[in-house]
């Protein structure tokens, strides 16, 4: 074959092909699409919706200790009173200030994103405080304390109820589905949509499905017809550690 007929795939060819492809596409009418987007934005602006942020990073020991103390006191309080709904902003968030210099150790935590606040490294959930939370366990595996109880939703899909747990190793999200007929796979997929993360099932054992939400491990299972999942929001846990924590959740 002559040199002339040889086709070399170059970066420039890929670039040109993509530009040509994007120019060739026939999009829908801009006005029609924009009208739908405006309507969707209006629907999405729920006044009581808040944005939770989860982060890992260096903080001064004092700040970390303050948070642990606040979480600990709150956890004990929850342990004593099952029926009390979780109060909004119940964690001493002001103690966390990542602008403070002289970091002493790695820590992770959760906060409510303030209006106009810009994102930093972390994990975000659009959620609102659950006005009538189910009786979430106050403690998981002795190390994880109940924090926020949440209603998690996106624009169209069924709402899920969730609870955030804080521990010294990680923070976790425990989610229960309100949609009874949903299988575990759609449940995990929907969870990805709610959290704006691509979720992927990576294994299964004894009715449990291990999944990953872009690097963070999760575990889903079904109990009495209700889909449930535990997902690591910040910090580091192995799937085995997650499973041992899930065993506590399943004892409910």
């Amino acid at each position: 074959m002559s040199e002339r007929n040889k086709l070399a795939l170059t970066d420039d060819m890929i670039k040109q092909a993509l530009h040509r492809e994007f120019e060739a596409v026939t999009p829908p009418s801009a006005d029609h699409l924009w009208a739908k987007i405006e309507a969707g934005l209006e629907r999405a602006q729920k006044p009581d919706k808040k944005r939770l942020k989860f982060f890992s990073g260096p903080f001064v020991l004092a700040a970390a200790a303050s948070l642990l103390l606040a979480v600990g006191v709150f956890g004990v309080y929850r342990a004593l009173d099952f029926s009390t709904p979780v109060a909004e902003d119940s964690i001493a968030l002001e103690a966390l200030d990542d602008s403070v210099p002289a970091p002493a150790e790695e820590y992770h935590g959760v906060g409510v994103m303030e209006e106009g606040e810009r994102a930093q490294a972390g994990f975000y959930i659009d959620a609102e405080t659950d006005p009538e939370p189910p009786s979430w366990r106050p403690l998981l595996n002795a190390d994880y304390y109940l924090g926020e109880a949440l209603l998690i939703s996106n624009l169209e899909d069924p709402d899920y109820r969730g609870a955030v747990y804080y521990g010294s190793e990680a923070s976790l999200l425990w989610v229960k589905s309100l949609a009874g007929e949903e299988g575990l796979y759609p449940f995990i997929d929907n969870l990805g949509l709610f959290l704006d993360r691509y979720t992927e099932v990576v294994g299964h054992t004894n009715g449990h499905k291990y999944f990953e939400a872009e690097g963070q491990p999760g575990l889903a299972w079904q109990e009495k017809g209700i889909n449930q999942a535990l997902l690591v929001l910040s910090g580091h846990l192995t799937p085995e550690e997650l499973k041992s924590i899930a065993a506590y959740a399943e004892q409910q």
Binding site: P28, L33, G40, L41, A44, G116, R118, A119, D196
Partner: peptide
Amino acid sequence: RETAEDITQDAFIKAFSSLHQLQ
């Protein structure tokens, strides 16, 4: 086409609702 239109719509809504996440 229809699904791509829906996804485009949702993508813009999600983006505009989450602009503060853009670093």
